[in-house]
Design a protein around this nucleic acid. Structure first.
Lengths: 232, 232
DNA sequence: TTCATAGTTCGATGTTAGCCGAAGCATTAA
DNA sequence: TTAATGCTTCGGCTAACATCGAACTATGAA
């Protein structure tokens, strides 16, 4: 035993299946009401209330009161990052859910990871950015090059200088649980994803609690033109 | 309905305080025995055995059998990465612990491991042998090169061909408990150690039951000349 | 051989914590 | 005001699991 943070308390919070389902549902980055989370977890509202109180006390989620609803969201991207990491370990050990649905392949192809793109396409994008020298990556840290800034401004109309944030890096590597390789997180990752949505290149699956991202036909073409795997 | 890996099973493994303490102890990247981990967690060996089996089944740790010891280590850096992330969340929520522990420095520097040299100097020796291309190591197996045979004959008057044994390999990698890295075992490891004793380079500590090996002044010099860390 | 040590398995025990029914606020709509 | 909805608190039930004593296996030491 050494001095340091007690990981057991926070891990045990995630360790309960009902709470894990709630947290997974919140991985969309959207805020959900207590009732919605109860339904996602498959438990009664009064049980959910107990779980939500514990998650809030543990600093994993935060509430926002709105009328007679209570909306909950993850307290930050770092929570989502840890959840994604746990998913990676579970995937490697073969601990998949018993009820694996038909949306599984779509989830692996493209999904929301808190507020940025994950899955096959997310990994593909960061790969391409590295090849095009838009970013320099050393271990965990990613840095945008001058060419990268120009690219973002011209191709996606994103002013990268405006993405600076006091508590969050512009670029960050996030380990993808399905691909087991990095995709792009940070404020730039979020900006790119929301731009995709604005341009109607992609849209979140309307199913409640779904993390799937569906690309449109033209969106897929534009994405491939910018970040295709045959791109130099 | 639900898709993707089940993070709850992995998180619940980390969620138990005893198991969390074990994993934290393994965060150094070094391997620890089951008893050591039991002591670290403050539980009895039989309880620890149950926990270690679960952690192994969950793919978080892997064992390496060494005599009657079982050394456990994390299965990879990604496990450590997730634990680090959990620690970050716990830190933010304000959950911490405390404790310490002293040890024997001489024992860590040089000691007998069954019949060969272990400790800092033992690990140093194998490191140097690898650098000098006296041995080729692939995972657990070590093989003496032609140059290695010549070296042993000239520098230490050891006829390596005479070390063949029906039930024991000439070279073997043995996991060092103080350094948590490999040192040289096998008949060659035993021969080298006894040669050190014959040459009066080193002697076992006279204290009954002590495993400490004391190097003489000249012995230390000769050893450094052959296996010093600045050696090419 | 005989003894000691490292580790595991089994069985019994006790605490914990998730779960839901019922009742109790709180907010909104009529 | 009355009713309806969203959420929480309380109480009791139940299942899960961490824990340890005792016994067993395996390996090394004398």
């Amino acid at each position: 035993m050494k001095a340091g943070p007690d990981i057991a308390v926070v891990a045990s919070l995630v360790g309960d299946p009902a709470r894990a389902n709630m947290l997974t549902a919140l991985m969309t980055g959207r805020a959900l009401t207590a009732s919605e989370l109860a339904q996602q977890a498959g438990i009664t509202p009064q049980t959910a209330s107990s779980h939500l109180a514990k998650l809030e006390a543990g600093g994993l989620i935060e509430p926002e009161k709105q009328g007679r609803h209570r909306y909950y969201r993850l307290t930050g991207p770092d929570v989502a990052h840890v959840l994604e990491g746990l998913a990676g370990l579970a995937e490697r050990a073969g601990h998949t859910r018993v009820r694996t649905g038909p949306k599984e392949p779509a989830l692996r192809r493209a999904r929301i990871c808190y507020d940025h793109l994950a899955g096959d396409l997310g990994v593909q994008m960061l790969d391409s950015m590295r090849r095009q020298k838009l970013v320099r990556q050393t271990k965990q840290t990613i840095e945008l090059t001058g060419e990268g800034k120009r690219f973002m401004a011209e191709a996606l109309q994103i002013d990268t200088d405006a993405l600076a944030h006091p508590r969050r890096p512009v670029c960050k590597a996030c380990l993808d649980w399905s691909e087991r390789r990095h995709h792009l997180a940070g404020t730039l990752g979020a900006a790119v994803m929301s731009r995709f949505t604005e341009l109607n290149w992609a849209a979140r699956d309307p199913t409640p609690g779904s993390r799937v991202v569906n690309f449109t036909r033209t969106g897929e073409k534009r994405f491939a033109a910018l970040f295709g795997s045959e791109q130099a």
